[in-house]
Structure formats: C-alpha cells, structure tokens
Design a protein around this nucleic acid. Sequence first.
DNA 1: CTTTTTAGTTAAGCGGGCTGAAATATATAT
DNA 2: ATATATATTTCAGCCCGCTTAACTAAAAAG
Lengths: 149, 149
Amino acid sequence: MTNPLPIYQSLREWMDVFMHRSMRGWMHFARSSGLSMPQFSILMQLQHRGSCGMSVISERFDITAAAASQLVDKLVQAGYIERDEDPNDRRAKLLRLTESGETLINQGIEERHRWMNDLVNHLSEKEKSKVSEALGILTEAAQQFEDKQ
Amino acid sequence: MTNPLPIYQSLREWMDVFMHRSMRGWMHFARSSGLSMPQFSILMQLQHRGSCGMSVISERFDITAAAASQLVDKLVQAGYIERDEDPNDRRAKLLRLTESGETLINQGIEERHRWMNDLVNHLSEKEKSKVSEALGILTEAAQQFEDKQ
DNA sequence: CTTTTTAGTTAAGCGGGCTGAAATATATAT
DNA sequence: ATATATATTTCAGCCCGCTTAACTAAAAAG
C-alpha cells in the first residue's frame, strides 16, 4: 500500500493524521504545565523566532498591546520569560526565554517527537532513509519559502 | 543540502518548521471564524473521528461533562453541530457536524493545505515523487499505530 | 525646545471556559 | 420493584484573555 499516490492526496492524508495528533498533544502539554494556550504560544514563538519586543508579540498574535503586556507579565512572573529594557530604545522591552522557559518548550517538543520516533521505528531501514530524505527536502523548501514572506 | 541526514534530525527540523506553521494557522483560522480554540477543537475532533457522544468529548479534552455540554451547546446554537438523542440509549446524545460545520473545517484544512501545496510546487518532479512516497509511508504507519492505542 | 509619535503599562469591564454541586432522566443490577 | 449507576444539563462562581481608555516615558520630527 505504499504505491505511488498523487502528491496532493499524500499531503492531505498525512496532514490530517499529523495535525490532529500534534495539536492535541500541544494543547494537552500546555494545560498540564499550567499554561493557557495563548501563554504557551508566546513561549513557542520566542523559542522559534528568538528574542523580540512586546510590539512583535501583539502583531504576531493579533492582539492589542495591552493584552500582550498582560500575557507576558504572567509569563515573567512564572519565571519563563525575562523582560529587559532594550538598550537601543529605552521605551522598548526585550523579551527572551529564561532557562526554565527553554526547558519547558523543549520538553514539549521532545514529547511530540517521541510519537514520531515511535512511528518511524516501525519502518524498515529502507523506508527510514526514504522518509528522512523527503523530510530534508521539505524542511529546506519550507525554510526558503518562509524567508520570502 | 539534501544529503542524508540522520532521521532523528530530519524529523526534528521538519516538525519544528511544520508545527509552528500549522498551529499558528489553525489558531488564526479559528479566531477569524469567531470560534474559540476549545470550540474549534471539538469540531476538528468530530471531523476527524466522526460522530460521538458527549462523554467522549469530555474524556478526550479532559474537561468535566458540564464543560463539554456547555461548549457543545454553543456550537449547536451556532449551527455547526447537531445533537440528537442516541436511539440505543436515550440518556445519551449523538453529536455530529452539520453541513455548515463540515464546510468550515474543510476550509481550514484547505488553507493549511495550500501552504503545503505551494511548498511542494517548488520541488522538482523527482523530489515530489520522493516526498509523496515518504508521506504515504508515514501516513500508513501512523494509522496502524493509532489503532493500537 | 516643543510637538508628535512610538512602546509599553495599568485599570475597569465584558464574555468565555471551567469546576463543583444539584437536578433530571434513563439504564442496569439486585 | 427498588436501588444504584450512567449520561447529560443547569447554575453559581472563579479565573483568564481581551478590549478600550487613560497614563508614563522616551524617541523622532519640526
């Protein structure tokens, strides 16, 4: 049943399975770590795109500056984020994950990962190498693609 | 740069890019359709796993029966879910997506899909077929794997 | 130097998700 | 037939995210 399917269909099926799994997993993980999804998303964003200012948060999540400020404040108090003055612009703040924040997100990634790993471990060596190559292709394409936006 | 990477690393990189993208996309879509994430997740669950009773919702999302009932009620009033009596057990309810609910979720899938499609369209024919095959392998593995849990 | 714009904070208030407790109705067990 | 268990609903109350409006402070423009 690993016959060549049209790529459109392969994508659709894969995304269906994978997205449900990973969304559910993340939400569960966020909850179990005592964070709301909005809070958790901010940590993910900082991990993914690195340090940024408050205004970036409000733009990226499409919320007001006030909402961003309040959300971030909770994360600061929980010890997951550090909020320092931007040396280049004393109005602005620089947000970055603390070690504890980093650890938390990495744990989440690790869990999500474990599922995929278990999955992949059921494959033959040949299948593994095919999958590995294909994911490499996709990742590189995605990175180039992101840059263009 | 599509040299053979260890599969562990390919997975990690791919998931990093992909998960951020798709999570963000889903949340944005949910918000723009006027639904909260919990509400939206219920619709996704119904689309993914098909019709079910109220108790399944509360178990699956790890919320009380009361919370499930309230969430579902809003979705019923919004016209996305139909809530009928289960003919086999008159205490229970059978929840299923209405046409409008189905359409909504499919739109979301379509959007998520479009990104992947654009991505894949940057690939050569040869790369496309490799990716297609690999995703087929993964999807099948995932489906077998799910069944066992 | 004054004015205006930009970055962020604070507070009041709305609506939403969630829980616990109480209630209803049906199914199951004895 | 009665007692118990199960599936769901309703309600009061809490916390949280979000918005608007008012405020502070610093940068940029004139």
